[in-house]
């Protein structure tokens, strides 16, 4: 069982190597001649006049929180979906109660305007 995951581990390591090797090779063989203008961050042709790490809209944070809720939900649904034919109507009913609760929460978010983006 577990040994079928071993090729995946090797694949992930090779994937990292596929990204790292060309970058390192290019880093070694190419010249790097930097000066202030060349190395400054791109900003429409003039000098950057503000710090990049600026405050950003709280909406992004809200979206991330909502995402965690719904992604957890997906994590619950995955094993349930695979065994649905074995657990029958009881399993179906249990998940419907869970889904109803989630949908009530979803409607609440919707009405509160958490999904609006202006």
């Amino acid at each position: 069982m577990l040994e079928s995951y071993f090729p995946i581990l090797i694949f992930i390591l090779l994937g990292v190597a596929f990204g790292l090797v060309p970058v390192l090779a290019s880093w070694i063989i190419n010249p790097r001649k930097g000066y202030d203008e060349k190395l400054s961050p791109y900003e429409c042709g003039f000098n950057a006049f503000e710090d990049t790490r600026m405050p950003f809209s709280v909406k992004y944070y809200l979206i991330a929180i909502l995402f965690i809720l719904f992604d957890l939900e997906t994590a619950f649904l995955f094993p349930w979906a695979v065994v649905l034919d074995k657990i029958g109507w009881f399993g179906f009913g249990a998940m419907m109660i869970f889904l109803t609760l989630l949908v009530i929460g979803f409607i609440f978010e919707w009405k509160k305007g958490a999904l609006e983006w202006e």
Binding site: G15, V16, V23, N30, L39, S40, P41
Partner: peptide, 22 residues
């Protein structure tokens, strides 16, 4: 040439594409 902008975090800067492709 690989250009690493001034004030950029060089390690994360180089690591990001690797973490995308893996």
């Amino acid at each position: 040439e690989i250009i690493v902008p001034s004030k950029a975090n060089a390690y994360l800067f180089i690591l990001a594409p690797v973490l995308t492709i893996a």
